[in-house]
Design a protein around this nucleic acid. Structure first.
Lengths: 225, 225
DNA sequence: CGAGTCTTCAAACGTATGTTTCAAACAGAC
DNA sequence: GTCTGTTTGAAACATACGTTTGAAGACTCG
C-alpha cells in the first residue's frame, strides 16, 4: 500500500455515510470505524471535517466536470452554429453522468444524493466551495439551457431549472430505495439508465410546458388571491 | 396566560429555527433562548426533542389534512362520477396548502421547507411518524393521481410521481434561498403562490409527457448501453 | 544499518448536546 | 390562608462531538 490507501478508505466510507445520513448526522467516529482507520487520520490527512466533505465532492466532481466539458464541446461542434436543442443538452448531461467510471454500481445515485444534500442542508461552506470550484461547467450548462429555451422569460426559466434539479436530485438520490419498492410492488427491475430514460422526457416536457397559469383552471370554483 | 403559552412560544421558535437550519443543526438551547423560555421546558412539555419535532409537524399537518380531505370531497362531488383531471387534483392540493390559515406571512414557505426537509433529511423517526399519522390523505391523493392518468402504465406513473415529489420537495425545501438568489440576480420578488403557479403547470406537463424514450434522440452520436 | 520523514495509534482536551434533578414559584379549590 | 398539583428555574449529568497531542511504528534513502 504505497501511497496510503487510508485516504481512499476514508473517502469511500465518508461518501457512503454522508449520502445515507447527511453531513452533520455523520460523525468522524462513524467514518473512521467504517473505514477501519484511526480517528485522528481524518484530521491528519484532510485537516478538518469540512475539508473532508469538500474532498468527497472534489473526487467525483472534478473528473465529472471535465467529462461534461468535452461532451458539451462535442455537442456544440456537432450542431455547428445552431444552439443545441433542450433534449440534446439534457442528454449530454445525463450521458456524462452515466458514463462516468464508477467505483461501484451505486456510484451515481450516491452522488446525486450528495448533490441534493449539498443544496438542501444549509452547509454554507459547501455551497461556497462548490460555487467557486465548479462555476464554469455549471454556467455553461445554464447558457445552453437558455439558448435551448429562448421562448421562456428569465424568471420562468430560472424556476423551471430549479424544478428540474429537484426532480433529478431527489429521484437519483433515493433511486435505490425506489427501485426496491418498485420491484416489490410491481415486480419490475429498473436500471439507472432506464430511470434517466424516463426522467429526461419528463423534464423536457415540464421545461417546455405552456405558459404558467396565474390562477387555477376555470373548472375550479376557488381562485388564487 | 391561562394555558401556558410557553408551549406555543416553543413551537413558534422551533418551527422557525428548524426551517432555517434543519433539525439536527438546531439545538434545544437555540430554541429555548429564542422562545425566551427555560431549557427544561421542552422536555417538560414535550418529553424529548424528537417529540417536539413531531409536535411542530402535527400543529400544521393535522388541520391541513382535514382541509385537504374536504377539498378532495368538494372536487369529487363537483365532478360527480367522472374522475377529476390531473390539473384539478394538483390545484386542489396546492390551494389547500395556500389557503391554510397562517400564523404569519411566511407560514406556508416555512412549512413547505419543513416538509422538504422531512423528506430529505433521513430522520427515521419523523418519516415513521408522518407515515402512520397521515397515510389516509396521502393515499387518497395517490388514488386521484392514478385515476387522472389512466393512459400511463403503473411503472411510468410510479416514476413520474417520484419526479413530481422531487421537484416539489426540493424546490420548497430551499425556496427561501432560491428566492433570495432570484431577487439578487434578477431583482424579482416571488411569493409562494407564484412559485406554486409555476410549479403546477410544470408538473402537469411532465406527468403527461409523451412516452418515454429508451435511447437518446437520433441526433446524438452516443447511445445508452 | 541508521537518520529522517511520513503515518498510525491511544488517549486526552474542550465544548456542545439532550436530558434529569430538585427546589422554588405559581395556580386554583376549599 | 393553606393545601395540592402544575409549571418554571438554575444547575448538574452523562454522553458525543471535532480536534489536538505526543509517543510509537513504518518507510525511504544515503
Amino acid at each position: 500500500m504505497a501511497q496510503s490507501d487510508t485516504v481512499d478508505r476514508i473517502l469511500d466510507a465518508a461518501e457512503e455515510l454522508f449520502a445515507e445520513r447527511g453531513f452533520s448526522e455523520t460523525s468522524l467516529r462513524m467514518i473512521t470505524s467504517k473505514a477501519k482507520v484511526n480517528l485522528a487520520a481524518v484530521n491528519y490527512h484532510f485537516g478538518s471535517k469540512n475539508a473532508l466533505i469538500h474532498a468527497v465532492f472534489a473526487r467525483f466532481l472534478t473528473p465529472f466536470s471535465a467529462t461534461l466539458e468535452t461532451a458539451f464541446d462535442d455537442l456544440e461542434e456537432r450542431c455547428d452554429g445552431n444552439p443545441p436543442t433542450l433534449n440534446q443538452t439534457l442528454w449530454a448531461l445525463t450521458e456524462s453522468a452515466i458514463r462516468m467510471p464508477q467505483r461501484n454500481e451505486r456510484g451515481i445515485s450516491i452522488f446525486m444524493r450528495l448533490l441534493g444534500l449539498a443544496y438542501t442542508q444549509s452547509q454554507g461552506h459547501l455551497r461556497k466551495f462548490l460555487e467557486q470550484e465548479y462555476s464554469q461547467p455549471f454556467g455553461r450548462f445554464m447558457r445552453l439551457l437558455k439558448e435551448a429555451t429562448p421562448e421562456l422569460t428569465a424568471v420562468d426559466r430560472y424556476w423551471r431549472i430549479q424544478f428540474m434539479l429537484g426532480a433529478t436530485a431527489f429521484t437519483m438520490s433515493s433511486s435505490d430505495a425506489l427501485r426496491d419498492i418498485l420491484q416489490n410492488k410491481l415486480g419490475v427491475e429498473t436500471s439507472v439508465q432506464e430511470i434517466a430514460a424516463r426522467l429526461v422526457p419528463f423534464l423536457a416536457a415540464g421545461m417546455q410546458a405552456p405558459d404558467k397559469l396565474l390562477a387555477p383552471p376555470p373548472e375550479s370554483k376557488v381562485s388564487v388571491a
